[in-house]
Design a protein around this nucleic acid. Structure first.
Lengths: 335, 335
DNA sequence: TTGTAAGCGTTATCAG
DNA sequence: CTGATAACGCTTACAA
């Protein structure tokens, strides 16, 4: 491995018979180099297999081109879809994504942000958890941009991208009632994140306005298995719900499977179900789930665009609110 | 953003009343610093919010700590599961993952590797596509390690991790026959990757040994929708198969959904189905799919362990062959 | 347009 | 154990 190290601008310069600055300029967009030197440099670089060292460049420019994505549950359909969109759009913007997985162990978001600082990331995008205030301040103070996706936080400085979770909850409640449902339920996990709780509160509030009290149950981690358990709990009640809004599609899939296969309930005839996220499986014909689509592509583009802006007026509050689109499928009667 | 830049070792040194080398040593595991200086340095660092600049460190040490993960179809269940495992294990090994998405546009694996070189990544792990020979050589020549997962390649140098796809195909063929199936089919995509083709060939060969000719169909991209189309094609044949091995679980889910919902076929009574990957959905009760589990965790640990080794004997051929575990579920009769 | 030289924040070497 | 000093590979005034 020691053998031959990476090719440096120096070597390229020598082979091309120019100064090292000429080489540097050749690879700096918008620098002044004569067509002739440029050609010779590129030739030499190609021959030698030279590639600009972004570590060194970042050191000088004080801008690494790195953006940290801080994520947990990467293997989850919604998260991986967002991740896909973010990496793609970052790359198109000439940046590169550093992925930090915060699964297991607590306080790991803080650790992740420390890592981001060490690599002098230009920015960090937080998809999971919430960092400590002090470390957030540290990032901002060092000129690192911060984007929070679907995490509620009152600190000024970071860009906050959120959905209209509360309103969505309301829309689905009215949809249920319009479909003739009378006993509404909300199935949630115990995660208690602002997005999940927003959906819950919006749903309950809208139902209340229609004079209906909602059965609420919360259990475990926000996944398929929890959905099954929630179904077992809710469908064995004496007053069985005829409509359930699950806080996420994964919960909804689990709920629906349990309802059908363990209770022999027919969806949507006996039970209407809705979810949130519009993960790929929601469109699979076994589920055909009515759900809210998170505008992943818009989320990503808002984030990337903001990160690419030259200046961000300090102290201002940056916050974007996007609306989730209701996707009508067959899990609610009479759609 | 210009305001106050990042804190440097210099500033920490001044505040602690020591030399900058002392600071450096404090943050270098296994360097000799007195307990007293160490304490003073750490105090100053904490107060100032100092974090070692890994860009600069990488420059000096000629070792960035960065490992590039080159992936397409990140949002796919199997890929995201592998990604999750890789990032987690890399982090445990003190490395950090740089994610490069090679969706859309061809030759993008080469571009990704160039990016890896620019950031002086210590290694690249390739999960999708196959790089050009010349660029592979460039990486290796520069001391960058390379890991190829499930891609067949004869170039010496990279670590190659593969599964026993061919044998798995054989195992499932015998399982089908043992379950009483007589008309076997193989549903594949048009991707034509070595893994997919290996499963196909192994399945066909084993069936041939049992005196059975396999119906083979290939269509589209390796996903759910292709599975549906394949089902439409195969289940409208005059001689309808009573067992189908799908090259991946996504294909299998699509196939099964089409079989049940469009053709009213009962699985496994009228049709046995098997898949490959053991994605999470395979265990969902709507599918309950018999499949082969990719040992993602072992794949990741092999990769990370090899990357962490100090020396790799040059020129030797490094290749690991893992076996996929057959997970028996309800989509094959009499399991 | 070009080259020279200074400096980015580290770590490694080498006296003390 | 500690502190100077020299790299590392690059960019960027500044001068030519």
């Amino acid at each position: 491995m020691s053998s031959k190290l990476f090719v440096s601008a120096q070597e390229v310069a020598e082979r091309a018979g120019v100064s090292r600055s000429a080489v540097s300029r050749t690879f700096t967009p918008g620098a002044s180099v004569s067509a002739d030197t440029r050609r010779r440099v590129l030739e030499a670089a190609e021959a030698l297999g030279y590639h600009v060292n972004h570590l060194a460049r970042g050191l000088m420019r004080n801008e690494s081109g790195i953006v940290c994505l801080i994520v947990s549950d990467v293997a989850t359909p919604y998260r991986s879809a967002l991740l896909r969109e973010l990496t793609l759009q970052l790359q198109n913007a000439g940046k590169v994504a550093m992925l930090i997985n915060t699964d297991r162990s607590d306080g790991s978001v803080d650790r992740a942000l420390r890592q981001a600082i060490r690599y002098r990331a230009d920015a960090s995008v937080i998809l999971s958890g919430l960092p400590d205030k002090s470390i957030t301040q540290l990032c901002l103070r060092n000129g690192q941009r911060l984007v929070l996706i679907n995490r509620d936080d009152d600190q000024p400085g970071p860009l906050k991208i959120n959905l209209d979770d509360y309103e969505s909850g309301g829309r689905i409640a009215t949809a249920f009632v319009r479909a003739g449902c009378r006993t509404l339920a909300f199935a949630n996990s115990e995660a208690g994140t602002p997005s999940l709780m927003g959906r819950e509160r919006g749903f309950i509030a809208a139902a209340a306005r229609l004079g209906i009290e909602v059965i609420v149950e919360r259990y475990g981690w926000t996944g398929y298995e929890a959905g099954k358990v929630l179904a077992q709990r809710m469908l064995t009640r004496t007053e069985r719900p005829d409509a359930v809004f699950c806080a996420t599609d994964l919960l909804a899939c689990g709920f629906m499977d349990a309802a059908r296969h363990q209770f022999g309930i027919s969806v949507p005839d006996q039970l209407c179900i809705a979810g949130f996220d519009d993960i790929e499986q929601a469109s699979w014909s076994s589920y055909d789930l009515t759900t809210f689509a998170q505008p992943v592509s818009m989320i990503a583009s808002h984030a990337v665009e903001w990160l690419s802006k030259a200046e961000n007026a300090d102290g201002e509050d940056h916050s974007v609110r996007l609306t989730a689109e209701l996707i009508w499928r067959g899990s609610i009667r009479g759609g």
